Structure formats: C-alpha cells, structure tokens
Amino acid sequence: MEVRTIKVFTTVDNINLHTQVVDMSMTYGQQFGPTYLDGADVTKIKPHNSHEGKTFYVLPNDDTLRVEAFEYYHTTDPSFLGRYMSALNHTKKWKYPQVNGLTSIKWADNNCYLATALLTLQQIELKFNPPALQDAYYRARAGEAANFCALILAYCNKTVGELGDVRETMSYLFQHANLDSCKRVLNVVCKTCGQQQTTLKGVEAVMYMGTLSYEQFKKGVQIPCTCGKQATKYLVQQESPFVMMSAPPAQYELKHGTFTCASEYTGNYQCGHYKHITSKETLYCIDGALLTKSSEYKGPITDVFYKENSYTTTIK
C-alpha cells in the first residue's frame, strides 16, 4: 500500500517557510505537534488534498525554529505562539472599519479597549522592536488589523473576551517599542525636605499616572512627601515624541487643539466601556464603527496623549 502524501510549508514567522512532505494517514499533531492554519487549530486533523502548498504555523520545537521565533517575536515564552494563534482565530472574524481616516474595530468580545489602543497607536510616533509587531502594525494602518490585535493580546497575556485596560495595554506595548531616546527629568520640591531631581528613561519617561493635564504637570502637581507634608512635583525636561497622561476616570474637559487623542471610560472596574476622542479640525468621538463630532467635550476621561518633541522648564 502506497503512502499518500502532500507537500506543505511549516513556519513560526510566515517569513521562513520549511518544506514538509506530510503523510495523509496521520494527523498534523502526530507529525508536527500543535499546528495552526489561519489561526485555526488543526492539530487533530489529517492532511487533505486542499492543504497542498498551504502554510501551517507550528510551535518552535527545534533550534532553527526557536531562533526564527525569537528573532521575529522577541520572546522565548513557549506558550506565546499558541496564544497568538488562538487569538487570531477570533480577531480574523472582527470587522476593521476605516473611521475618520483611522483603522478602528467594530465592537465584539469586549474589544473596546483594543480599538482605543489601536486608534491611539496610529496617532503617536512609535516604532516597535519585534519585527512581528512592526509588520502587523503597518498592515493594521492599511486596514488589516487582525494579526496586530492578536499579537497585542498575546504580548499582554490576554484572551479574547476578557476586559482590558488601555493604560495597561499601552504599557505592555511600550515595553516592546523603541523608547531608548526618551528621557524625563522631574523635580520634587518640599518646604521641609528641599528639592530632589529624578531622571527617568524609556517607558517611565512617557507615562504618568495622577493627572490628565500635561500643562498642569509642567506647572506642578501636589504629591505627598515622605515627611508627610505636601510637596510639588513638576516637569523639568521632556525628550520624547509623545507623552501619555493618565488618571482614574473623572469628568474632564478636553479643549480642541490642546491634545492629540484621549480615552474615555464609562462604567466601573468590573464592567465598563471605552471610547476614543481625537482632536482634528474639530473633536471626534470614535466608538467602534461609530463616529460623532463636537466642538467641545466633557466626560469621564482616563488617558490623554500629547505630541511632544523637546521641553525644558522655565521655572527657576
């Protein structure tokens, strides 16, 4: 009895394709271990004539594949690729409408935090270190965002349907971005203890939790000093293409032309909904596939993004 075979390709990165001759009487799992086709788990399936010449994702289970996976995804987590594939199996079914010149995501599976993050990423200057993220990001900007969303979920250790947080998501993504040249110098002034300067680099240099107003941050924000008295913390120097200011959701007025974009969060910790506000020729609110415009805006804002380049204080 002759062994019926077909020729397929296996890959971990969709760049390096490895030619395989597979036995049609055995499952993919018996031949390769966990195997995925377009995100779908085909591990328990036997090869079919229609699979001839198709590319299958496999887990990096030998040295060659491990090197290829690390170079593309910059992670050695053995569960990463499987999590990416199972997320992709959902995100490829989502709709990605162009809204006001940006790629958004039609609401499904509690994905409003991903839509808000995706919209924000198209408006701030950011370059990702893992080629996987950078490639998928370019495709997302062009309207094909399924891979990018699935990668975000995998890097953030999230599953489809789980509630997510924009600030946490951005923080994970910033860790995989090139923020080497970003720098922030802060000064804390206390009447009792004097003053202390701190220099922050990388992710810490672009994120701040405690106030939404970048102007206020430049002037000074009140913080408790270690001595128990009130101290003032203010920005001395900022070198970065953008800054992200966050605070627990509270009524906040966004003035046209003073910011790049913002995240609105309605609801409580267990259950809520994100919308995205962007400042173009007027203010726009993007909620999944829905767009509304207004000249002014007041609502429960939790993150505001500002364009920056270089700032030095005039406070002496």
Rank of each mutant, 00 (worst) to 15 (best):
M1V: 06
M1I: 09
R4H: 14
T5H: 15
I6M: 15
V8K: 03
F9H: 08
V12R: 15
D13F: 02
I15L: 14
I15F: 15
N16M: 01
L17D: 07
L17R: 10
H18T: 12
T19M: 06
V21D: 11
V22M: 11
V22I: 14
D23F: 09
D23I: 12
S25C: 15
M26R: 15
T27V: 14
T27N: 09
T27I: 14
T27G: 07
Y28R: 00
Y28K: 00
G29W: 06
Q30F: 12
Q31N: 14
Q31T: 10
Q31K: 10
F32Y: 06
G33M: 02
P34G: 13
L37Q: 13
D38M: 11
D38C: 11
G39P: 03
A40V: 12
D41W: 02
D41V: 14
V42K: 08
T43R: 12
T43H: 12
K44P: 12
I45V: 09
K46R: 11
N49M: 15
N49S: 09
S50E: 11
S50C: 08
S50Q: 15
G53M: 14
K54E: 15
K54R: 13
Y57K: 05
Y57V: 12
Y57P: 01
L59V: 12
D62R: 06
D63G: 06
D63A: 15
L65S: 13
R66A: 11
R66N: 15
E68M: 08
A69R: 02
F70D: 12
Y73R: 01
H74N: 11
H74F: 02
S79F: 15
F80D: 00
F80L: 02
F80I: 03
L81C: 06
Y84I: 00
S86D: 14
S86A: 13
A87N: 10
N89R: 08
N89W: 15
T91H: 01
K92F: 00
K93F: 09
K95G: 07
P97N: 11
Q98C: 13
Q98S: 14
Q98Y: 06
N100I: 04
G101T: 01
L102P: 01
I105R: 03
D109V: 04
D109H: 08
N110Y: 05
N110Q: 10
N110A: 05
N110T: 02
N111A: 01
C112P: 07
L114P: 02
L114H: 04
T116L: 03
T116D: 09
A117G: 07
L118Y: 02
L118M: 10
L118W: 01
L119D: 06
L119K: 04
L121N: 02
Q122N: 00
Q123L: 04
I124M: 06
I124T: 05
L126K: 01
K127S: 10
F128E: 00
P130K: 01
P131S: 02
P131F: 00
Q134F: 05
Q134K: 11
Q134V: 11
D135S: 10
D135L: 08
D135Q: 13
A136C: 04
A136D: 00
Y137R: 03
Y137T: 01
Y138H: 14
A142K: 14
G143R: 01
G143D: 00
E144L: 08
A145P: 13
A145V: 02
N147F: 00
L151Q: 01
L151K: 04
A154G: 03
A154C: 05
Y155W: 00
Y155R: 03
C156N: 03
N157F: 07
K158Y: 10
T159I: 07
T159M: 04
V160F: 00
E162R: 03
G164A: 11
D165W: 09
V166Y: 12
V166T: 08
E168C: 03
S171L: 12
L173S: 00
F174Y: 06
H176R: 12
L179N: 03
L179T: 02
L179Q: 04
S181K: 13
S181Q: 11
S181I: 07
V185C: 05
V185H: 03
L186A: 08
L186H: 09
V189F: 10
C190K: 03
C190P: 02
C190H: 03
K191A: 12
T192N: 15
T192C: 14
T192P: 04
G194L: 05
Q196G: 07
Q197V: 14
T198F: 11
T198L: 12
T199Q: 13
K201R: 12
K201P: 04
E204S: 13
E204P: 07
V206K: 05
Y208N: 09
G210K: 06
T211E: 14
L212I: 08
S213Q: 05
S213A: 06
Y214I: 14
E215D: 15
E215L: 05
E215S: 09
K219Y: 07
V221E: 09
I223G: 10
P224L: 13
C227A: 04
G228Q: 04
Q230G: 08
Q230E: 12
A231E: 04
K233V: 12
Y234P: 04
V236S: 09
Q237G: 08
E239F: 08
E239P: 05
S240A: 08
S240I: 02
F242Y: 04
V243I: 08
V243S: 07
M244V: 08
S246M: 03
A247N: 10
P248G: 09
P248M: 07
P249I: 05
A250M: 12
Q251F: 07
Y252F: 14
E253G: 05
E253W: 11
E253L: 10
L254P: 05
L254E: 08
K255R: 12
A262D: 03
A262H: 07
S263K: 00
T266P: 06
Y269F: 13
Q270G: 11
C271W: 11
Y274N: 03
Y274P: 02
H276A: 05
E281D: 15
E281P: 02
I286D: 04
D287P: 06
G288W: 01
A289R: 07
L291A: 14
L291G: 10
T292V: 10
S294T: 14
S294N: 11
S295Y: 10
S295H: 08
E296Q: 11
K298C: 14
K298E: 11
K298S: 11
P300K: 14
P300H: 13
I301S: 03
V304H: 04
Y306W: 05
S310K: 08
S310V: 14
S310F: 14
S310D: 14
Y311V: 10
Y311S: 04
Y311R: 07
Y311W: 15
Y311H: 12
I315V: 14
I315W: 09
I315P: 15
I315E: 11
K316T: 13
K316A: 15
